[in-house]
């Protein structure tokens, strides 16, 4: 039987991620481009993944699109919501996962899994607070790279309080702190706490049943993760593939579909 190749493309609001899998077991390629749906990101991510394993799109036995831009990917054979993909990806990486916290660029979601099946979920309302976008806006105000936020926040000795959960008002609050010469490291630690508390509210709505895992780009920020662990009083596991979890799930669901068709 030939090797079954499936491609999962997670076309998010702030980044495009792509994973190619062999037989639903081994990752052949993974790529991320830091721009999302509606940009050159999706095509670049797919092209780079294919190039990384020396394949063409025509070599893919099934292509599954997910994420905010999933409807615009005309080459996809199937499109699945990012929540279903994150559930599938999480089950692959952590078979004992019961709670998945996915903080993406535009929204935050909490999933409840049972035996790998999604049986409950909540999404944040239409608000940037508690999302990757919130961190990006704050990083810009603080003149810090988003990727460096965790390192800066870890050096804080007295985190400031960011009382507002609205991105616009929180930005004003951060500027006020800067105006009185508050330490940037303390402001960043306060921002991490603010995001964590916002997401913890969502987690409580489905319950933080172990094993809790975190996916999405924000999972790479240890500052948010540690604050979230404290807020929900439960350890959180993070895979090095956290940012690729949606694309991974899409590639796995594409493989599942292939098996159904055989």
């Amino acid at each position: 039987m030939p090797v079954l190749l499936t491609l999962g493309a997670d076309l998010g609001s702030t980044a495009s991620k792509c994973v190619i899998m062999q037989d639903g077991r081994k990752i052949a390629a993974q790529t991320t481009i830091p721009v999302g749906a509606g940009t050159s990101g999706p095509s670049r991510a797919i092209a780079e993944s294919l190039a990384a394993c020396g394949k063409n799109l025509a070599d893919m036995h099934m292509v599954c699109a997910t994420g905010y831009g999933r409807h615009s990917m005309t080459d996809a054979h199937m499109e699945v919501s990012e929540l279903s993909c994150h559930a599938r990806g999480a089950f692959f990486l952590f078979p004992k996962a019961r709670t998945v916290i996915d903080i993406g660029g535009q929204d935050a979601k909490v999933l409840r899994l049972s035996g790998g099946r999604l049986n409950n979920f909540v999404m944040n309302d239409k608000c940037a607070a508690g999302t990757g976008r919130f961190l990006e806006v704050m990083a810009k105000v603080l003149e810090v790279e988003t990727a460096d936020l965790a390192e800066w926040g870890a050096q804080s000795t007295a985190p400031v309080s960011i009382s507002s959960t609205c991105t616009v008002f929180a930005e004003s609050e951060v500027i006020s702190h800067l105006a009185v010469a508050a330490d940037r490291r303390d402001i960043i630690a306060g921002i991490h706490k603010s995001v964590a508390h916002r997401v913890a509210g969502l987690v409580r709505r489905v319950g933080a049943e172990p094993l809790v895992i975190m996916t999405g780009g924000v999972a790479r920020n240890a500052g948010v993760r540690l604050e979230l662990e404290a807020a929900i009083a439960t350890p959180i596991s993070v895979s090095p593939l956290a940012q690729f979890n949606g694309a991974l799930g899409a590639a796995l669901l594409a493989h599942d579909r292939l098996l159904q068709q055989l």
Partner: peptide, 14 residues
């Protein structure tokens, strides 16, 4: 309606 669409699609999957 992107977010409601995602929620409905996921719910239908569920």
């Amino acid at each position: 309606y992107a977010q409601p669409r995602t929620a409905v699609q996921t719910f239908a999957d569920m």
